[in-house]
């Protein structure tokens, strides 16, 4: 990144006060409520699987899969982006947001073909999350392993 000149710095300071702040409190509240609701849905689904005879540990994987399906389905219907506009982090952080981040580019780039469009662009948003998620998991795992020795 290049260094700003004095004139550029002055301008940046000048516009700092002009720039409207995002409605932080509203955004946090909406994220809390919608994120919480998504988790409630997840819990209901999990309880359903448990009621069908799975142990809580076994029910985890099918619950995640169902939530991913719901996220993908709502993306396909064109609903998830509308939820996300209001909920922000509340609908990005849960696993449904992860599904949305993969399905939305896959849908959008279908016109560029199944290889260079769908397959190549599918991870354009989620890719960094997967890469750094895996990397940090390995690092944490190593630390955990060493500490246990």
């Amino acid at each position: 990144m290049q260094k700003l000149t004095k004139e550029q710095q002055d301008y940046q300071n000048f516009v700092k006060q002009k720039r409207p702040k995002p409605p932080l409190l509203k955004n946090i509240l909406m994220a809390f409520i919608v994120g919480g609701l998504i988790c409630v849905v997840g819990q209901v689904i999990m309880n359903f699987y448990i009621s069908r005879g799975m142990s809580p540990k076994e029910a985890g994987a099918p619950t995640s899969a169902t939530m991913v399906f719901l996220g993908a389905f709502l993306t396909g219907l064109g609903v998830y982006d509308k939820i996300g506009k209001r909920a922000g982090a509340g609908s990005i952080v849960p696993i449904t947001g992860f599904a949305n981040s993969i399905v939305s580019p896959a849908m959008e780039f279908k016109r560029e073909g199944y290889v260079f469009g769908v397959a190549a662009k599918m991870f354009v948003v989620a890719g960094p999350v997967i890469v750094y998620g895996m990397c940090s998991a390995v690092v944490i795992g190593l630390i955990y392993y060493i500490l246990k020795l």
Partner: peptide
């Protein structure tokens, strides 16, 4: 949007600016 920013169906928030 798709050239400069994100896929349309991505549930992200844009800032007031």
């Amino acid at each position: 949007e798709r050239q400069y920013r994100f896929p349309l169906e991505l549930g992200n928030q844009s800032p007031p600016t």
